[in-house]
Write a protein that binds this DNA or RNA. Structure first.
Lengths: 120, 120
DNA sequence: ATAACATATGAACAATCAATCATATGTTTG
DNA sequence: CAAACATATGATTGATTGTTCATATGTTAT
């Protein structure tokens, strides 16, 4: 990370000074941007995407998901933990088994938007 | 990865057999799911998110972005390459300098949706 | 042509991460 | 209580990734 005494300068920054100030003002806080990146990181793995897609259709238990996707129970459980901590899925306990479902509709919307981008 | 001869079975798969079949049918092809995960992976880094946010307001050159975000020219260039290969930004060359802008509106929509999820 | 500049690229390294294996927790059934 | 079952967790490991440093490519100006 370069420190302020050693900042590079191209000719355009000062030409676009107004724009640059505007950009700086509109930029959300660092923490928010970090959280946003963390959210997308959760979507950024094909196993987790598959799990989410599976939950598009139905509430499923860990073991069902594992069979459905040809994965280990452990792998699925680990990934469900990531999805849960990102508030993308929510558990419902029923005796021994835990059923997972999508936490809210943002998950659907985000994935749909992503698909649109892929397919265009 | 477990092979088919050694599949775990919980009591629920067969209870939910119809649902499981339906889920399997609705599931997109593996390659598409992989690509989708790749797309989200591009959003899944705070530096890239910051770059995208900067480009929300204006077309900017590499050097401007570097200064704006307090990053190395090299780091920005590397990340712009990732963003470009994900078709999230597009370059416009003008002499020595290269200006980058958002490739399309999906970028805005996706980030907006993500922010909604974060802020709720 | 040569110097200055803007950007891109390649190699190297530290950090992060997903899958695996082994095991722990907690629930139901006999 | 003990055995069987469903899920969760912790440690390890191979792979991926973001940054840095050095350098290359390509453009403009003297």
């Amino acid at each position: 990370m370069p420190d302020s005494s050693d900042v590079e300068r191209c000719g355009f920054l000062f030409v676009h000074q107004d724009t640059v100030r505007q950009v700086t003002e509109q930029m959300p806080e660092d923490e928010k941007l970090y959280d946003l990146a963390e959210l997308f990181k959760v979507f950024g793995d094909s196993t987790r995407i598959k799990i989410l897609y599976a939950l598009f259709e139905a509430e499923l238990c860990v073991c069902d998901i594992a069979q459905l996707l040809g994965l280990t129970q452990s792998a699925v459980s680990h990934q469900l933990r990531v999805l849960k901590s990102g508030r993308l899925v929510k558990p419902r306990k029923e005796g021994k088994t835990v059923f997972y479902s999508l936490a809210d509709d943002h998950v659907r919307t985000l994935i749909a938007q992503g698909m649109e981008h892929i397919e265009e």
